[in-house]
Structure formats: C-alpha cells, structure tokens
C-alpha cells in the first residue's frame, strides 16, 4: 500500500538541496529501548558535533556555541526517546539526518509505527500546531497530575514554547502494517 504522504507543519524536502553540511546515522529502536542511555549518548554526541558549526564568539544576535549544544542535546534526546518509545510494527529502523544552512540547522528523525498509531499522533500534532502553546502546555500538565497519565506532547510543547523550534511531520505508508513517521525540527541560529 503506497499512498501520498501526509505532511503537517513546517515540512521541507531537504535531500538533494544545497547545504553547508549533511549528516546521517541509522539506528535500531530496540537497541535504544534495551539501553535507554543510548538516547542520551546519541543526542550528546550529535549536539556537540553540530555545535562546532557555531563560531566563537558568535555573530551578533546569534546563539553561543554552548547554548546551541544544550538546546540540541535536549531536542535530540526528546526525539530519540520518542523513536524508542513509539516505534512498532515490523520495521524498527530509525533514521537520523541533519542539515546545516546559513541561518538554521534542521534535524529529521524517522521511525516506523503500526497504522493504528497514526491517527492519535496526527490529532496531537494538529492540536499543537494550531492551539495556544502556553495554554496547551499547562492544560496537559494539570490533566496529567489529575489522571497520573503521562503528559503526551510535553516535550514538543516545551521545545516550541520555550525554545522557538519549528516542527514538521510526515506520515508515509510503507506497507499495510507500517507507517514511516518523519519529524523535522528547524532550529534557528539566531537567539530566540
């Protein structure tokens, strides 16, 4: 089954486009779940590696290298953790890709889920992309304190609300039993 991919938010086709640098890595979701610290290790490695693109001192109005490293470590850890938590179905491959441009870096994490997981995630995405971020963030925390349920979407909401990161999402059906979910994070190099 191959249909048109569904995209949400700020999704761009970046492969094949000019960039200052392009990086990729493949992982297995089961190996992240097996040793959870692999999420943190992977995010710390890439955050340190990518932050070396930031000159010291930074250009006026731009993020310092240490701030960028910190932002990227938080962002990538959330994205790797999500891939580990939510991967399902026959494909467990996770693809990491990153691009460096003059004024931004873009990170794309792709994992695979069972088809039933698409609709609830798409509903959450639509809510986050159209709602008031502050209101949603506090609403979700209050609700999770009531029900003891995990506060879904809190990682994304923090990244959008407190760090100004823009997200794009893409769902592509691979087979009847598997959907590839791509998440793109656009990080501006200017201070937010």
């Amino acid at each position: 089954m191959r249909s048109q991919p569904a995209t949400y938010g700020h999704w761009e086709q970046l492969d094949g486009m000019p960039s200052l640098g392009r990086y990729t890595m493949d992982l297995d979701a089961r190996h992240l779940t097996q040793y959870w610290r692999r999420c943190s290790l992977s995010s710390n490695f890439w955050s340190r590696y990518m932050a070396l693109w930031i000159p010291t001192p930074p250009a006026p109005g731009h993020l310092r290298r240490d701030a960028m490293e910190h932002i990227l470590s938080y962002l990538l850890n959330e994205l790797f953790e999500n891939c580990a938590k939510f991967s399902g179905g026959p494909f467990q491959r996770i693809a990491y890709a990153a691009w460096v441009h003059e004024e931004r870096m873009v990170f794309e994490l792709t994992n695979h889920v069972q088809p039933a997981a698409q609709a609830p995630f798409a509903a959450l995405i639509e809510e986050m992309l159209t709602g008031d971020l502050d209101e949603l963030y506090f609403q979700r925390l209050e609700a999770s304190a009531e029900s003891n349920a995990p506060g879904s979407g809190l990682g994304y909401l923090t990244l959008m609300k407190d760090y100004g990161i823009r997200f794009g999402f893409r769902f592509s059906a691979i087979t009847n039993a598997s959907i590839a979910v791509g998440v793109q994070a656009h990080v501006a190099l200017k201070e937010w």
């Binding site: 938080y74 850890n77 925390l141 209050e142 999770s144 304190a145 995990p150 506060g151 990682g155 923090t158």
Partner: peptide, 17 residues
C-alpha cells in the same frame, strides 16, 4: 545539567500537588 520531558513532568506534578 539536563532533565528530560518526563522529568519536567514529574517535577511539575509535584508542584501542582
């Protein structure tokens, strides 16, 4: 140095309680 979103959620729930 770092606290993930599950940790932020845990601390936030403690504050709400």
């Amino acid at each position: 140095q770092f606290l993930n979103s599950s940790g932020i959620s845990m601390i936030s729930k403690f504050v709400i309680n």
